[in-house]
Amino acid sequence: MKTNAGRFFEDFSLGETIRHATPRTLTVGDQALYTALYGSRFAVSSSEHFARSIGYDRAPLDDLLVFHTVFGKTVPDVSLNAVANLGYAEGRFLAPVYPGDTLWAVSEVIGLKQSSNGETGIVWVRTTGFNQDGARVLSYCRWVLVRKRDPASPAPEPHVPTLAPVVAADEIARHAPALTIDSYDFDLAGAADRFGDYSDGERIDHVDAMTVEEAEHQLATRLYQNTARVHFDRMAAEKSRFGKRLIYGGHVISLARALSFNGLANAFTVAAVNAGRHVAPLFAGDTVSAWSEVLATCPLAGRDDVGALRLRTVAVKNRPSGDFAGREGEGYAEGVILDLDYWVLIPR
């Protein structure tokens, strides 16, 4: 067979390495389209002059554009037959990616567990993104619920990997050495708030909201070469449990990050993703808003000009962000669609 129907749960083997197809060279055009889709306003990825003034070679591509591009490489081999993308952990942004860089990806299967219904199974993978020189630029783990080809096929021996709940602060400090934050222009960045202006437990209502339309989320997902049928194929989507096309979860992550500018304008880079969960689906016509909680404030060793904030950003649909909907006991409040725990860097 010359065509690819995607892998089913039975097709994965613990410890196997998957080298994904189609390297992708990213350009300023990709960054411009990304900005048009989400309206991100962080100065580092918007201005060559601003980026150079704090030590970057030039304006780096948005961190999440890099994440989605690497993620998109993995879809044909990992999640084409997925029911749901369940979560993320141990995400590390390892180096800036600039226009003209080429990204490619490799994944290792680190866990397998068949579901109790025998019809699906969870696959854990660790994916690494590389640039054209073979340097690692991104690493993360995710786990996916994947359909079985034959429910009667034997289950593999279950193996659930142990993943760190938080990326250690000393690991994210590597983002800072080349930067010269003493030249950071707060006026041009859009806000005066520094590291010391945030406190543990503080909640920030990002105020703004965006309504998602069918065309834009499909355009975004094509930008990342994500081939998951549930995002594009109406006939296939109508047979799913949702009955209509599902918006790619990464689209929600990028919307939440863009919305967080209002309150976190100086969180100039995402350094790591500790954990993430797509709590509920999003569909065209829904309106997304977001709020963030400061889980921890962490000075970086040897640096008096930059610190790290551990944030929990919650995206909600069709309700105001200011009511801080979140966990309710063992579950989530109605309307919560994303719960993301991550580190950002911010000037002190």
Rank of each mutant, 00 (worst) to 15 (best):
L311A: 02
V144H: 06
L300D: 12
A271Y: 01
V279M: 14
R241Y: 11
G322L: 01
C298N: 12
G15W: 09
F242W: 09
V75M: 04
S40L: 13
F67P: 04
A135E: 09
R348G: 11
L163S: 06
L295I: 12
V28K: 12
G87Q: 14
V279K: 14
V106M: 13
E214V: 07
D305M: 01
G250T: 03
A84N: 09
A290I: 09
K2N: 07
D286F: 10
R222K: 13
A296K: 05
V273Y: 00
T221Q: 03
W104G: 03
F93D: 00
P299F: 09
D63V: 05
T127C: 06
S183W: 15
F12V: 11
V137M: 03
F71A: 01
I18K: 05
Q218L: 01
R319Q: 08
G87P: 00
N226C: 02
A135D: 15
I204W: 08
G250E: 05
V344H: 01
M1H: 13
V78E: 08
P177G: 07
N262P: 05
F195C: 05
R149I: 04
L223S: 09
E293C: 04
E119W: 03
D341R: 00
G39H: 10
Y88C: 04
I110P: 15
F9V: 12
P165C: 06
R310M: 12
A325H: 10
M210N: 09
G134K: 14
K73D: 11
D304T: 14
T3L: 12
E10L: 04
L64M: 08
P281L: 14
R149N: 12
D187E: 06
S254G: 08
N117E: 08
I181G: 02
T25C: 07
S292W: 05
Y198T: 14
L112Q: 11
Y248W: 02
D101H: 10
V294Q: 01
V106G: 03
L340S: 10
A178W: 04
V137H: 02
R174E: 05
L264I: 12
L246H: 04
R348Q: 15
V144D: 10
A36W: 06
R312D: 04
L145A: 08
